[in-house]
C-alpha cells in the first residue's frame, strides 16, 4: 500500500487509461502547460504530447460540445471544466446533447464522455466559484454522476468512468485535492453504482457525499460512545445504490443525509423521498438533511463558514434523530 493524495490518484487514473487506450484524450482550459489549475493533469503533456492533452481557449460550450461530438465519433474524451460553476455556460452541451443523444437516436449513438470538474466551498472564492451542482446533473436522465471522497475511490471511479460507455459527470471537491489516503500499487477499479460503508454503526445512518463523508466521519468520532453512526458514502448519485441505504436504515431506523449543496431542492431530499417511500416502516424518527444555507456563497470567511455545513452540524442532526 501507498499513501497518495487525491490529486495524485486522479492523475494516475488518467495516465493509466491514456496508456491503455489511445482513444482517451484530455481537453480543457490550461490542462497542458500547467497541468490544470489544480494540477490534476500535471506531466501529461510531456508524457502523451499536445495532441492528446488539448489546451483550449476559454470556450466551455465549444470544447465541451467538441468532446461530445468526439465521443459520438468513437473517441473517449476526458473534458475538464475548471469549476462546476463554469459548466453553466455549456449546459446545452451537457443536458440537452450529451445526456439525450443515445436515447433520441434509439440507441444508435454512444457518448463515452467524462466531464471532470470540481466544486464546493471553503476557499473564499465567493458565489461563482463555490457551488455544489450535483443535483442538476443527477436530475436529468442520461448521465452518471460520481462524487469520490477518498483518493482510493477517486482513482478507481475515474478509471471506471473513462471505460464507461455513457456520459459521466465526475465531481471532485477542491478541499479534497490535498487529502491523502491508502492505495494499492496494483491496478484496480471501483464500479459506478456501489456505495461504500465508510464506518459501521448501529444507531443512526449518515448518508454522505464528497467532502461531507470526511465531516461525517469526524462527527462519528465526536459521538463515539454516545451514538453509533454508520457512514455510507454514496460515491455515485447515478447510478444510486439505494439498496445500501435501505439496508442501513432498516438496521438503524434513523437517517441523516449530509451534503454540502444547498439544503433545499438538493439530492439529500431525493434520498429522504426514497427512504420514506420504500422504508417508511423502518423509520423511528423523521429523517434530516444537513446542507448549506440557501444563499449564494458569501466571500467573507466568517460568513462562508456560517453557510457551509460542518461536522458539528452533523453531530447536532444525529442527536436530533437519535
Amino acid at each position: 500500500m501507498r499513501n497518495v493524495t487525491y490529486i495524485r490518484a486522479l492523475n494516475e487514473a488518467i495516465a493509466e487509461e491514456m496508456k491503455r487506450d489511445e482513444a482517451v484524450f484530455v481537453i480543457g482550459e490550461d490542462v497542458a502547460d500547467c497541468g490544470g489549475v489544480f494540477g490534476v493533469t500535471a506531466g501529461m503533456m510531456k508524457r502523451f504530447g499536445r495532441e492528446r492533452v488539448r489546451q483550449t481557449p476559454i470556450s466551455e460550450a465549444a470544447f465541451t460540445g467538441l468532446a461530445v461530438g468526439a465521443a459520438m465519433a468513437g473517441l473517449r474524451p476526458i473534458c475538464e471544466i475548471m469549476y462546476v460553476d463554469f459548466a453553466t455556460t455549456c449546459m446545452d452541451q451537457i443536458l440537452n446533447q450529451a445526456a439525450k443523444l443515445r436515447y433520441m437516436s434509439g440507441g444508435q449513438v454512444t457518448v463515452p464522455l467524462v466531464i471532470r470538474t470540481q466544486q464546493g466551498g471553503g476557499t473564499c472564492e465567493a458565489a461563482q466559484h463555490s457551488q455544489n451542482l450535483e443535483a442538476i446533473f443527477a436530475h436529468v436522465p442520461g448521465m452518471k454522476v460520481a462524487m469520490p471522497s477518498t483518493p482510493y475511490d477517486a482513482k478507481g471511479l475515474l478509471k471506471s468512468a473513462i471505460r464507461d460507455h455513457n456520459p459521466v459527470i465526475f465531481l471532485e471537491h477542491k478541499l479534497l485535492y490535498e487529502t491523502k489516503g491508502e492505495m494499492p500499487r496494483e491496478e484496480y477499479l471501483v464500479p459506478l453504482g456501489e456505495a461504500d460503508v465508510k464506518r459501521e454503526g448501529t444507531d443512526v445512518t449518515v448518508v454522505a457525499t464528497s467532502l461531507m463523508v470526511l465531516r461525517a466521519l469526524e462527527a462519528a468520532e465526536t459521538l463515539a460512545g454516545e451514538v453509533s453512526i454508520e457512514v455510507i458514502d454514496l460515491r455515485t448519485l447515478v447510478p444510486l445504490d439505494f439498496e445500501a441505504i435501505a439496508a442501513s436504515v432498516r438496521k438503524t431506523g434513523r437517517l441523516v443525509v449530509a451534503q454540502e449543496a444547498w439544503t433545499s431542492g438538493g439530492f439529500g431530499g431525493e434520498i429522504v423521498r426514497r427512504v420514506c417511500e420504500e422504508c417508511f416502516d423502518a423509520l423511528v424518527a423523521p429523517p434530516k438533511v444537513v446542507g448549506s444555507a440557501d444563499v449564494p456563497m458569501p466571500f467573507s470567511p466568517g460568513l462562508e463558514q456560517a453557510v457551509l455545513p460542518d461536522a458539528d452540524a452533523i453531530v447536532d442532526a444525529v442527536r436530533a434523530v437519535a
Partner: peptide, 20 residues
C-alpha cells in the same frame, strides 16, 4: 449524426468528428 432541437446546438458537436 442527428438533427437538433436546440438552435445552434449542433455547431459544437460538429467539431467532434472533425477533431477525431
Amino acid at each position: 449524426m442527428g438533427g437538433n432541437g436546440i438552435v445552434g446546438g449542433g455547431t459544437p458537436l460538429a467539431l467532434g468528428p472533425a477533431f477525431a
